[in-house]
Write a protein that binds this DNA or RNA. Structure first.
Lengths: 337, 337
DNA sequence: GCTTCCAATGGGAGCGCTCCCAGGTGCCCC
DNA sequence: GGGGCACCTGGGAGCGCTCCCATTGGAAGC
């Protein structure tokens, strides 16, 4: 009755032996490849069941030269950048798409030197079948490494500089323009922008969108007021803004976190939102709904962003040549503007 | 000048040949193992540099029977559970600890059937050197799978039922008790609890802490008002609470998201916080600081949680036998209570 | 009935690394 | 001066799988 606990995992050879076939046939049966008779196929299946056989992914990887994993690399100087719920949603999307392709997700936070070194090694050693790269800053060494890697690379968000061959991005400039135009259409004239880091393309593009909208409306854009996409930086930027331009009546913040910070500063300064100052954010994360007042914000399809990035990578891994993708944004009007 | 782009990665054999040594010596030099003369060691290093050699992790994995990766599995029926910023912080901590041990992080969202199946396969095929398991619900099949796996498994948060051999957890009951006692000490008498999912141990323990504190103060605990750790569920629970107990003057919410929802409902119902109703949350995520009013909440060391989980796993992988860990919580007093 | 063809089969050579072991060298010590 | 005894060294056997290829046998075609 008591089954001897097998110390070692059964191997394909043992399955083959038990099924009375050769290893080749067993392998073909397992990968349901052609050229296996019905009888033997069934014999193999039976043996697999009896032995509780599971193929060894490492051995398979070595033989096929495919790891069965895709890496998602998040750059940035500070690991806490990853605490932004934005990434969690990207991961949910990417994970779903990779699951369909039966690829595992390796997550690499390339904040520390050590982390970057490990990513470089991953890239050079083909430790994954492909890589998704996010949150690159200007002159990020990861960009160069990726270019040199003999491996499919998809960028999540274009990096600063020339656009890479494969990327998924969001219409940052368009979204920012729409947000700013909304403020202007509500009669705001002294509209300022709290920007994200200007060493990222997203930060730059969103400022460009703001500026274009202002110029288009015949208004003077204010110079960029740089934050780092965090709530405190938004609060600080808003405070500085109030000091320099007490008459500001509209604010476009390059993400919801900073918008929330701006809201806090405005509340503390006794300014009513939106009566005195209207505020628009970007991202449409949970914080936008929770904020008081709820934030009017530029919605971006974050989960789709992750999903499309992964799908593009899968296509590349399968030898196809997908085209870059720019996802649309859409203004969600709540009460802050 | 123009270097021929080598189509194939150089192998250890080529390094050895170039360095004029055997493969064994090259291997030892690479892993800086003993029994290699200084001269040959340097020759190998030179050859590595000239050839741009990077060891093939898959081949190494096959030979050593170690994958060099640890998996973080997040269970739950809905992938969006992962959108909770809680997990992002856990990942930051875990990632840092794994980086020290030179292990890669595989992230598995085991929400769909397909996802669970893949985790099972991972477990059975030893596709990773160890696994961290989080967010298990009652009777979660993952628990059984993990128990059967011939692989180190660390639980992040104890599952419902008997405690596993290795886990990292937070003092949920203690934190909840402290939170509730705080409300009582501020003179609140009609204190309710908005619970998390009661099919998770965290949800249960936090309710137990609330109940114990109430009983300890000679007050009647209200029956659990169950949410699912999301903001809307907190808002809904609060609304139901107001309907059933209009005289409620204190609320302990089992996490910050639900507390934020409660805040919203209270605001819409015209109740002042904390004057009419005091609210305490749990987690101390960013949302607690952003909320209006800022939330008094039970701080838990989330990043440390992830870090310790990973460290425990690394210890197990290295053949040690670490002891389970329960991390302390601490009440952070802001203005909501 | 004999060639032709193709599905089915199993042998064997890798994939690129680790690690055990047998053999070889120099050096110290009695 | 010879027998240990370090330390080096390289050969070779795996790790568990895939896949090419030569071989077989039976069905189909003439």
């Amino acid at each position: 009755m008591a089954e001897d606990a097998p110390r070692r995992q059964p191997t394909l050879d043992e399955v083959a032996e038990r099924a009375g076939v050769s290893r080749s046939v067993a392998s073909r049966a397992l990968n349901n490849a052609p050229h296996v008779s019905r009888a033997k196929r069934e014999a193999v299946e039976r043996a697999v069941r009896q032995l509780g056989y599971v193929p060894n992914p490492t051995a398979r990887a070595l033989a096929t030269r495919q790891t069965g994993a895709a890496a998602l690399v998040v750059s940035g100087e500070d690991p806490s950048i990853f605490a932004d719920p934005f990434f969690a949603q990207v991961i949910v999307g990417a994970s779903a798409a990779l699951e369909e392709a039966d690829l595992h997700l390796m997550l690499c936070l390339a904040a520390s030197d050590r982390g970057r070194k490990r990513v470089e090694e991953l890239l050079r050693s083909k430790g994954a079948d492909g890589v998704m790269l996010m949150a690159l800053r200007e002159d990020d060494p990861l960009g160069r490494m990726a270019a040199e890697a003999q491996m499919p690379v998809v960028f999540g968000g274009r990096p600063v500089g020339p656009a890479p061959r494969w990327y998924v991005d969001v219409d940052n400039a368009g979204g920012a323009r729409e947000a700013t135009e909304h403020l202007v259409s509500r009669g705001r004239r002294r509209v300022a922008a709290i920007c994200g880091r200007l060493d990222t393309e997203a930060g730059r593009a969103r400022y460009r969108g703001y500026r274009d909208a202002m110029l288009g409306a015949g208004l003077d854009p204010l110079p960029p007021r740089e934050g780092d996409f965090t709530e405190p930086s938004g609060a600080a930027a808003m405070a500085a803004l109030l000091a320099d331009h007490p008459d500001v009546d509209g604010v476009f913040a390059a993400n919801d976190n900073m918008a929330a910070g701006a809201l806090r500063t405005l509340r503390e300064a006794g300014r009513r939102v939106p009566a005195d100052v209207a505020v628009v954010g970007f991202d449409d994360l949970t914080v936008a709904q929770i904020a008081d007042p709820p934030l009017t914000t530029v919605h971006q399809p974050i989960e789709a962003f992750g999903r499309e990035m992964a799908r593009m990578l899968v296509a590349l891994v399968n030898g196809q040549d997908p085209t870059p993708l720019i996802l649309p944004t859409r203004l969600v009007i709540r009460s802050s503007a």
